[in-house]
Design a protein around this nucleic acid. Structure first.
Lengths: 223, 223
DNA sequence: TAGATTGTTAATCGATTAACAATC
DNA sequence: TAGATTGTTAATCGATTAACAATC
């Protein structure tokens, strides 16, 4: 065994990996980082799974998509597994990220410490309101929206966060795509269309509350 | 047909409805609300699905969990389907919601207009910092955290949003559960444990970027 | 009527779990 | 060694899709 630990296979069979697996990897990573802070050196699929109500088999299967990271009889070395998962998620490197739209939400995201810790550095912000531009917020320079495309192209920015009003979102995304962006997290409550090769994650805060409403009204048993 | 439209079955077989279906209902609702603004009166499973890259069969199946809402040969009446989905999600009524933690993110959520539109009214905010309490932000009163339990109990608040630091989240949730909360949206990047009967939705902003990072690194084809 | 589209069944596809030999 | 735990296979479970009679 250990072929992947010793000689990591970079050609992940990504088309076969379910999206749900990737979400769970992020959850594992978050808990592993907590465990390492608490000084724990090894963990097991049973321990990791029980934190989320997953079976041990599911944890092992999730990791098995990407290689062999554990030691039979021992479990997983926490530090090692953190490194492995970061490698899988692509957060072993640091990403330069921009934010478009400096309203309430954009400003909050600018100041959010959680990004930096996970390998995402906000290097620029953009807004159409001249009153907000050519300043710095939380140490991040705020530019006029007119400079968006240039910035993305010249700085080779790959990831962007959209926090503009719903009406403006599609146009902003179109500009980003034109400028060569690779992925977008969209907080505007609107469905965005874009080329298949550009990655999109949508986060709709009202929808999260709707999901909660349904769960409460229907008294779901949660795991 | 039409038994459910005429005599809605309130006993949804909720345990059989996959979580993914509920997420899609929220997406359908958002697009239906846009269609109604654009003056469209009817839609079809094909149109609705194509907006998201879903098959028409999937859209019909999703709705079929809850009743019969369409008209063969015609499709779905947009207004009618909006009403039906709101009924399913429980957002035909308005919910009173509180926010705990008035940092950058909490403040942004306080001012977020999208909640009100979907039937969620923020009626109180709570923080441990005396400098922030006994004021109003965006028309919402901010109280000391000590008043949290009393407020939830006496006002019979059912839904709460947590935007406190990770370290404080579990304690806040414990207080809310004790005070009788029914559901929580947690923005703190930490795994929360709570009784099975209390509903929990976790939103981790850094995890959203991690998911994007993986997708970009692995050049996923999106639908 | 002919064309469109639903709701639903059966077939397909994919994900989860249980079990266990291999390993430390 | 005995106990613990992995990675993986086969069986199970669940979700999606294709197809079509029923309906407008």
């Amino acid at each position: 065994m250990n072929t992947n630990r010793d000689n990591p296979n970079q050609e992940f069979p990504e088309s076969q990996v379910p999206q749900a697996v990737i979400s769970r990897l992020s959850l594992y990573l978050r808990e592993l980082q907590r465990l390492v802070r608490e000084g724990q050196e090894t963990t097991s699929s049973t321990q990791l799974g029980s934190l989320f109500g997953f079976t041990d088999a599911r944890v092992r299967k999730d990791l098995a998509y990407f290689g062999q990271f554990g030691y039979p009889g021992i479990g997983y070395r926490v530090e090692e597994l953190i490194t492995a998962i970061k490698g899988i998620l692509g957060t072993d490197q640091s990403w330069e990220v921009i934010i478009v739209g400096i309203g309430n939400l954009g400003r909050a995201l600018l100041g959010y410490k959680g990004f930096e810790n996970q390998g995402f550095r906000i290097v620029g912000a953009f807004d159409s309101d001249p009153a907000k531009t050519d300043t710095q917020i939380d140490g991040v320079p705020v530019y006029a929206i007119e400079h968006l495309a240039d910035f993305v192209t010249s700085r080779k920015i790959r990831l962007a966060i959209i926090a503009v009003p719903a009406m403006a979102a599609q146009k902003v995304v179109d500009q980003l795509v034109e400028a060569g962006i690779d992925g977008v997290v969209n907080f505007a409550p609107v469905t965005i269309s874009l080329p298949k090769s550009i990655q999109l994650i949508g986060v709709d805060l009202a929808i999260e509350l709707e999901q909660l409403s349904f769960a409460v009204v229907n008294q779901r048993e949660n795991p």
